[in-house]
Design a protein around this nucleic acid. Structure first.
Lengths: 156, 156
DNA sequence: CTAATTCTTCAAGTTAACTTGAAGCCAATA
DNA sequence: TATTGGCTTCAAGTTAACTTGAAGAATTAG
């Protein structure tokens, strides 16, 4: 009797794509990036475990929260290798991400407060403005090379 | 008498680079992006106004706050065209950015609260998790094409 | 006045997170 | 069994925000 692809040796990339809403190309990319490591069948086709759906959902959610792929990869590294992750495992890594989010929110609030200060003094000049050289440059997150900002401040 | 480049017809790109800490290549890029529009001398060299230093400082600060170049360009469009911007002009556009920051902070806090909810219920499943399909996907800010997430949710 | 800087433009490289397309193998269906 | 559709790999394109390098012209310093 012809067994369904779901029951045989795991889920195909297509069904994983359907169930997560991710494009197959994205799922393959995540594999290149080490976020999932599906098995292969005899002819080289990927076969996923059911738990990979939750894993990929976590990836999507984390990206929505602003985490990068390498941050997500690090987080996933804390899941058990040879056991299907359970609720407790997921809750643990989610809790850690929660703390990072808290820190980022605080950082943004600090910058926002500085902006108020700048509006107050009307400065926006390089020497005076505390926004110009903040220790916590905030979301240098994302977008290509953002090289070190020089520090040749001077009067305007 | 040989006049200094600062007093003659405006500042050279090199001196602007020194005073802002930006690389000349970045300043030229900002010109391509319409953030500054320096004059040219007879042989085609760029000549900047003193007020362009403040303009470029605003660009740097705004980027530190997480704004994109096109957002910054829009903000700068509110500065007077044929008059050197004064403190009031800068304060006005800073105040607007402050409001955007407030909104972003609120958004992050909402997502963070949802993450707590998810830890509480231990779900992280596509159907149940409110993080999976939030209206306010937060910082889709940055990095290449992030195409529309499909919505074929299903039970895990 | 000549040499060393600085400036110009233009094309191509970089990172992140993917997509798109080509060329060909595998699998489910009629 | 034939065919359509799904899967595979690999190379190249995309956006953002720049940098790097080449080739040549202008400016400044000695």
């Amino acid at each position: 009797m012809p067994s369904s692809p779901l029951l045989n040796r795991g889920l195909t990339i297509g069904s994983i794509a359907d169930r997560t809403g991710l494009a197959p190309s994205a799922i393959r990319y995540y594999e290149d990036e080490g976020l999932v490591t599906p098995d292969r069948n005899d002819s080289g086709h990927r076969r996923y475990a059911r738990s990979d759906i939750r894993r990929l959902s976590f990836v999507m959610i984390s990206q929505g929260l602003g985490f990068t792929i390498s941050e997500i990869r690090e987080a996933l590294a804390d899941l058990p290798e040879h056991r299907t992750p359970n609720k407790g495992d997921w809750a643990r890594i989610s809790r850690r991400f929660g703390k990072v989010l808290d820190a980022r929110i605080e950082q943004m609030q600090a910058l926002r407060a500085r902006l108020d200060g700048c509006i107050g003094c009307g400065c926006l000049s390089l020497k005076t403005c505390s926004l110009y050289n903040p220790k916590d440059k905030a979301s240098t997150r994302g977008q290509g090379p953002r090289y070190v900002m020089g520090d040749r401040s001077d009067e305007i």
